[in-house]
Design a protein around this nucleic acid. Structure first.
Lengths: 218, 218
DNA sequence: TAGATTGTTAATCGATTAACAATC
DNA sequence: TAGATTGTTAATCGATTAACAATC
């Protein structure tokens, strides 16, 4: 079912977007879609879509296109969304609570077990149904429950030390919001470094470029 | 000072990361750095860094390297970080408040003027020093203060309608957290669509791949 | 069957890397 | 001056696009 010859990073990065669009199409009641139609919707080329899907063995049908249910299932399987992975969240500050309250972890393949914080005022409280526990109980919790990944919404400076501690205890992936780039790939631990400031800086740059363009077209 | 021949998207996406690393180096007290040393630090090649910087005219010195103060200033200028752009935030829910309370807008080139929400309980409150105003006053506020961009932390379904309304009133950029992809580039309005779920799905996939790798190496 | 659309190979394009002369 | 390191051109590599035979 899966070709086994190193899928390129560019393709992997497109998978969530494919998945998202397929879910939307499903919600719109569609049952099938051609590479051409999907390309138009997503601003890609049909060729690229077919190339991308064929990295994983091709799940279309000539003359018909792609069945949306099947596509959703296949893409989900490739990303491992239904494998019941578990996550914990470290740092129940504003951003941590925003995620606890609003973010749909299970839609991205994870069950969020609980959160940890050092602040006694927060311990015992629940946000979005997730309990905040004492940071003192973290090591024991990991030992017992073996969560797959940790969400880091702790202050910036603490990141490297805590990240290494987590990896030593068996955490196998990090979703890192601290702003400090973490690189544990050498240890075989993938990290997604989320840099909101990078995104906003890019917007700043693009707004400037668009302004210039407008000025020239006057 | 600036070459004017369409800098590639790949380069533009790297600019914030360059800027971030240069800021870190400055904080560490460094005064200069060579493309070789920076490449090592960032996991790139020296060649690529020199190519990238030379898209904008080259601000190094043979035999010496790059002066960090100068580099920071130049990169900041390229991205327009000191041009005093202004922003408003729409939707003071959990995520909106997390940004208001914690996010350093000015470090990414924007002054956040205030926030808007329809919930009467929130109106008048302040988060991180930013006032929440009634959504009813939004149109008038834009008219008077002409903010450059809007941060969308409103519910998903409202996104397209509100986005178009904002653009009609003169907003020239969107930082979109709604989860719904917005494409207004046709109107000359750049959008940064933030998809946290894409990032977490990618992590899910990478954790799976790393697990397989480990299994094979046993 | 005829029409449509995939899977896949070949061609093109763009981005990264290597090399080296220029020069601080 | 000698050493270092840039700016820049040329070579390589990888990703995207085009084309078309296979086939539903």
């Amino acid at each position: 079912m899966e070709h086994k010859q190193e899928v390129s990073k560019a393709v992997i990065q497109r998978l969530p977007r494919y998945y998202r669009n397929i879910c939307e199409l499903k919600a719109e009641g569609e049952q099938r879609i051609s590479s051409k139609a999907l390309a138009e919707r997503m601003g890609l080329t049909a060729s690229q879509i077919r190339q991308d899907f064929n990295c994983f063995g091709g799940f279309g049908q000539q003359g018909y296109g792609y069945n949306i249910d099947k596509l959703q299932e296949e893409l989900g399987a490739i990303m491992g969304l239904r494998t019941g992975r578990t996550a914990i969240l470290l740092g129940a500050g504003n951003l941590g609570r925003a995620l606890l309250n609003n973010f749909n972890f299970s839609a991205s393949g994870f069950e969020l077990l609980c959160a940890f914080d050092a602040n006694p005022q927060l311990i015992g409280q629940r946000f979005g149904g997730h309990e905040v526990r004492s940071a003192d109980t973290l090591a024991e919790f990991i030992e017992r429950n073996k969560p797959d990944v940790a969400v880091l919404t702790i202050p910036r400076g603490d990141a490297p030390r805590i990240a290494h501690g987590l990896v030593e205890r068996g955490i196998r992936g990090l979703w890192n919001f601290t702003g400090e780039d973490l690189h544990l790939e050498g240890l075989g631990v993938p990290v997604e470094n989320v840099h909101l400031s990078d995104s906003l800086m890019t917007l700043c740059h693009l707004v400037g470029a668009a302004d210039e363009e407008r000025a020239q077209n006057l």
